[in-house]
Structure formats: structure tokens, C-alpha cells
Write a protein that binds this DNA or RNA. Sequence first.
DNA 1: CATGAATGAGCTTTCATTCAT
DNA 2: CATGAATGAAAGCTCATTCAT
Lengths: 208, 208, 208, 208
Amino acid sequence: MPMKKPCASRDNEGDNSTDTASERKSLRADARRNRERVLEVATKVFATEGLAAPIDEIADRAGVGIGTVYRHFPTKEALFEAVIVSFKQHLIEKAQEMLEQDDPDAAFYNFLSLMLRESSVNRSIIAAISSSPVNDHRQLTGISLDFKNILEKLLKHAQEARSVRDDIRVADVTAILFGLARSMEQYSDDPELPERILSVICDGLRGR
Amino acid sequence: MPMKKPCASRDNEGDNSTDTASERKSLRADARRNRERVLEVATKVFATEGLAAPIDEIADRAGVGIGTVYRHFPTKEALFEAVIVSFKQHLIEKAQEMLEQDDPDAAFYNFLSLMLRESSVNRSIIAAISSSPVNDHRQLTGISLDFKNILEKLLKHAQEARSVRDDIRVADVTAILFGLARSMEQYSDDPELPERILSVICDGLRGR
Amino acid sequence: MPMKKPCASRDNEGDNSTDTASERKSLRADARRNRERVLEVATKVFATEGLAAPIDEIADRAGVGIGTVYRHFPTKEALFEAVIVSFKQHLIEKAQEMLEQDDPDAAFYNFLSLMLRESSVNRSIIAAISSSPVNDHRQLTGISLDFKNILEKLLKHAQEARSVRDDIRVADVTAILFGLARSMEQYSDDPELPERILSVICDGLRGR
Amino acid sequence: MPMKKPCASRDNEGDNSTDTASERKSLRADARRNRERVLEVATKVFATEGLAAPIDEIADRAGVGIGTVYRHFPTKEALFEAVIVSFKQHLIEKAQEMLEQDDPDAAFYNFLSLMLRESSVNRSIIAAISSSPVNDHRQLTGISLDFKNILEKLLKHAQEARSVRDDIRVADVTAILFGLARSMEQYSDDPELPERILSVICDGLRGR
DNA sequence: CATGAATGAGCTTTCATTCAT
DNA sequence: CATGAATGAAAGCTCATTCAT
């Protein structure tokens, strides 16, 4: 939304999970390294300076030319979305682990806790995820769908174990998570604030 | 964050509650109309397009020249802060009313509900309030202080009436409110989502 | 030259010496006071901040509205020229006095010395006088003519007294004076520099 | 004085004499051509219209985009300083030649003469050099220092040959030169004026 | 493929000047 | 007459994006 020339329409956020296998293999080793380095740096820079960070800075810090950034990500927005995708991938993996290793109650609430903690580092990313127009609209695809699915699984298991109110839906959880994640780190004077808030949310989700 | 030269002095955010009467009177009738029109339009534009909105657009939509905007608000940042101040003023008034007319429980929870509803209209404004550097940093002044105070009163009364957990502090409420307010409107497909979220929060705040 | 919109042509710098009597009398007392106050302040401001100084500042410091400045001086450039005129008037008076009271040699060289000293205060004014397009072009009128005339008289008397080389002309003196005046104050670390320079010039003008 | 944000660091005016070889080579051929073209045009434009000349015009006349100008010179001020540096370089070279080829007397006075002649073309440049804050303040660096040094050499040799008064210092010469250079071209109606002035200065410098 | 120079639309801000009050 | 609000043309500068090297 703050991006300057949104000329091109999107809706194609999802075609990445498949790319990973097909397209990536065709990249030369150094090219792949570059792509990953850029993504990594972009994550850090966007997290620190927000979307306003110039592409030049990302290129510089990644030690590549601007052209290279544009070769891998045709647009600043595309780069940003890639950052989000990779961040979601990270969350999905964590959720996966918890789902396999913990009991339903712990899995669900630990994931909440995790996200709230991650947020203090990646505020802008989270801000973007939750305000990205992709998120709310109709059909989810690719990563966003995967993310919703895993969250749904966490939620369903927790509800079956009576750890979460019956009427709660995934969207509720997402809204609460992304919302709070953003405002968490701001009140950093009080180190126990996050815990209190987490406890309020948990209590609320368990129901009376 | 994307603002260029925030060098300008702060500390002056608060001297408004009194200005309203004294200083405003000294403006010529048309000047005051313009100032208000600009503020009004800016609120709408910032809410829609975020801080990235160009001043030109605000001037255009307000039907004045760019210079007029700059006469009243010496900086884009100043304009934006004025918008926030006026929004907070509005919330304070509402809180005041509730404090006077409702019982402690209703006053507190109705105010939460109100803020969550307002947010669907003024997302960016809320986003900005909550990420504004003023908010988190030590000494609050002016409006921000007034806002904190009234919220504190609402909270204390509610706690004394056993409507809210004892350990909750104002900052917790603010964090929850502003956080959720932002993510509310995004999930607009499900009209009952806000209610469910509100109910989760309320349950959580009341404690087990 | 640095003025932004020089729309209107000039060449009418001279029609002032006559105004003084006719037009001025018709001004109300307060109007005349305003005019003089503006002129005075403008001199100071231009001398300090150069031509780049905004009209608003001059109006402010003079304690009048912008409109008042524009009533008396239809253009920024006009105001500036008025400043120059009044400065020249001041110099003319000084020259007059010296011409009457001192012997030719002293009159001439004291005037040089005076101008060089004045320059350290009014650098921008002098800079402007000497770079103003009015100065070099053909027919001089009004003050500029008066100034040239009195300087000519000083010079002629000095030459008749064998105090100045025969081949020197007024333009030479003006060029030397205005030129040096400007670069004088810059080398302010060495307090005796002006004296040495003055002595070089005087020696040079007297001839071998 | 009219420059907006001079905040930028200075101290870097001098590191050029060495750059010329090392750094310049790393620029692509077209980039170097552009840089030089811009510098060349800027010299002309500043000389004609003064510092007030808009960057756009320089870019246009150089046949490049505005961005290109800003790539090579991060600030209008930087561009202007580059112009001055290159002008001083030119003068230094001339002085060098004279120092090597002519006798002390001729070297010194020919250099004065040269500068006075150059000035008629590059008035604003000279104006700027002499009013540049670099010039008068304490520690000179880089080009400015080189320039002072070569002038000092010219002067010392001339003084040892009894061609210049003993008490004269470099600063005196600079002040006289830059001062007169500026006012020279203005009185262009009389083609012999420069010669007379030069002769006055020379006589003055030789002493009685 | 990688590079980074070039581009120029667009942004914020200033200020001479006009004109309603 | 005085005032200062309104105006809008510039100006300096940034940065997403393209394309020659």
C-alpha cells in the first residue's frame, strides 16, 4: 500500500512453493547463493527500517549490484513478498515441529507464545504480513494457504482437547496473533508486559 | 520511519487542549475553516493511504493550495501529528462520557468495544498512534498523557469493581487495544469476527 | 540576478531623488514611519543574510505585515534597490562632508578608507551594488549619478593636488573600491590586513 | 548562504589531486565522460547565472538526467565545490608554469594579470571562491592549500627579488586578486580600465 | 549473469506575490 | 491603509526501475 507505483496487479503470491524445486535447481550455484543472501539481508533491512528502505541499501549490504536484486525479484514488492513468504515458511516449520512433538494444548499455546516473541525482532515484517492485502482476500494460495492450514490443525486439535473455546476460528487466531505481535515490542519498558498479555489471551481463548 | 527530517523539536504535542479556545479564536474565519478542512481531509487520506499519501493530494481534496497546508502545518509530520491528536481527543471525549454515564464495568468494556469499532474506519491512524515514538517513550505529555489518564481511570474503576484482573496495567490495555484495532478490519469477510475477538479479550481481562 | 522572477524590466533606478519631496509628503505619518522602518530592517537583513532572505522575515522584524512591505515596495527587487539607494545616499553625504572639510588629498583617501571600513558591516549590500547590472550600463540616473558625480569631484580635486595619478578615472576608483570592499572582511584573522591593502592601493593611486 | 542544508561534512575538499588518477580510473568510460561533461557545464552555468542556477538546467544542458548529476555530486553544494576545485587546479597549473619559466618578477605579475583576465569569464566562480567559507578559515586543506602554497612561492620569490614590498603577505595578495577580479568585468565599456587597475595594483605592491 | 550508471517522476518544502478581510 | 492567508511555481533531492557494459 505504501509502495509507489503498484502498476502491476498481483494475486500470484502462491506460485512459490513449487518454484522451490523446479526453478531453483536450474540456477547456478552462485546465483542461488546470491538470491538467498539478498533475501536474508532484505529480511533484516525491512525489519529494521520498514518498507521505506531503498533497494540500493539492500543490494549494498548483500554485497551485490542492484541489477542482481532485480534479476531475482522483478520488483521491490516482489522482494518484499518473498521475504514474507520465507518468514511464513519459518513459522510453518516451527508449527510442524510442535504439532508432532507436543500435546495439543502445549502445541497451540506454545505457538502463540513463539509468534509473539518473534514479533519483537521482526516487527515490520509482521506488520506487513498482517496488513498485506493478500491476507484477507478470498482464496488463499501457496504459503498463505499452508500457513492457514497448519494453524487450523493446531487449533482443531486444541479444541478437540478442550483447550480452546469451540466457537473460535482460524481467522480469529490470526487476527489476534498478528495484531498483538505488532504492538508487543513497543511497550518494552515493562519486561513482564508480554507475559501478562499472553496470559490474558490464553485465558480468553480457553473460555470461562 | 519513512519521514525524512524528524529533527524538529517535539515536546509541543501537548499544548493543544488549551489552544483550542485561545489560539484558534485569533485565526480569521476562513483560515480556521481551511485548517479544519485540511485536518479533516488529512485524517481521511492518511487513514486510506497511510503516511505515504502525498501532501498534494490532501491539498487538492481539501480544495486549497499546497502552501495553505504548509501554513497551518509546517511539516508533513506536523500535519500527521495533528491528525493523531484530534483523533485522540475524540476518543478521550467518548471515554469521558462513558465514565460519567455508565457503571465501571460497562464503561470499561464499552470503551474497548468502541475503540475496536472505530479502528475499522481509521486503521492507519491507529497504526500510527501505536507506533508513534511518543507512545512508548517515558514521559508522556499533552494529549497522550490525557489519554493515558482517562484510560487509567476507566481501568482502575473497573478493577475496583472486580471487572478486570488486578495485575493488569494501562500499558497492557493499550497494547491490546491498539494491536487488535489494527488487525480487525482486515478479516472483514466474517462479520462476527470482531465480536468473538472482543469476547476473548474481555474474558481474558476478567480473569478466570 | 539571483532573484527568481525578474519578469519586469527596470532601468528606472533613478526616479527617487525627486520622489523624496513630492510623494513622501502625501504619505500619512504612520505610513512614512513604516516605510522607513522597513527600509532600515531590510538593510540589516540583506546585509546579514544576503538577498536570499525572505520578505516575511523582513516584515516580521519590522513589525509590519507582508502586505505593508509590498505596498511601499512593489517587488522584492524594488525593496533591495531602495536599500542600495539609501546606502549610496549615506555615502554621498559622507563624501560631501569630507569634500567641504578636508583638503583634497585627505578628502579622497579618507573616503576610500571609509568605504573599505563600511564594507565589513555591509558586505552583501556592497556586493550587490557592485554586481548590480545598473551600475555599469551607459546612462546613470538619480542616486547612481549623484554618487558618480561626487566621487568624480573628489577624484578631480585630488588629481589637481597631485595626490592621484592623472590617468585614473572614476570607474577605476569605483571598481577598486567595490571590489576590495567585498573581499576585505573575509580575511578577518589578520587585523592589519585592511591597512596594508589600503596602503597598497593608495601608493598605487598616487603613482610612482 | 542560499544553500539549504550545508550540514554535510566537509574536510574532504582536498583529497582530489590523488583521486584523479586512482579513483577516476575505476569509473566506467561513459560515467567519466558524464562526470566531466556535468562539471564543464556546471562551470559555465554557475559562471553565468551564479549559484542560483537550478540543477535541472545543468542536467539539461549537459544532456543527462537530474539523477546523473546527483550520482556524481551528492549535493548542489558538492557540485559547486567541485567546480571551484577544478578552477583552482587550472590556476595552480598556470602558476606552476610561470614559476618554472619566468623570472620572479614576471612570474608574479603575470600571474596577477592572468587571474584578472580569467575573472572576466568566470566572475561568479571567483566570487564564490573568495566568499567560500573554506577560504578564510584556519586550516586549509587540499586544493586550497596547494593554491595558497604556490601563491606563497610566487610571492616569496618576488619579494626576494625586491619586486614586492616586504610587508605583504599571501592573504593580502589573495584579497586583492579575488576582490578586483570580481569587479573587473563590470566596467567593460572602457577596454583599458583593467590595464590601469592592474598598473595601480602593481605599483602599489612594488612600494614607493 | 552481474553490475551499477542513468533516468525521471514524484516528494517535501520555500517564498514572492496577490487579494479578501 | 494594514494585514496575513492563500497561492502555486520552483527547487533540491530520492529512489524504483531500466539497460548498456
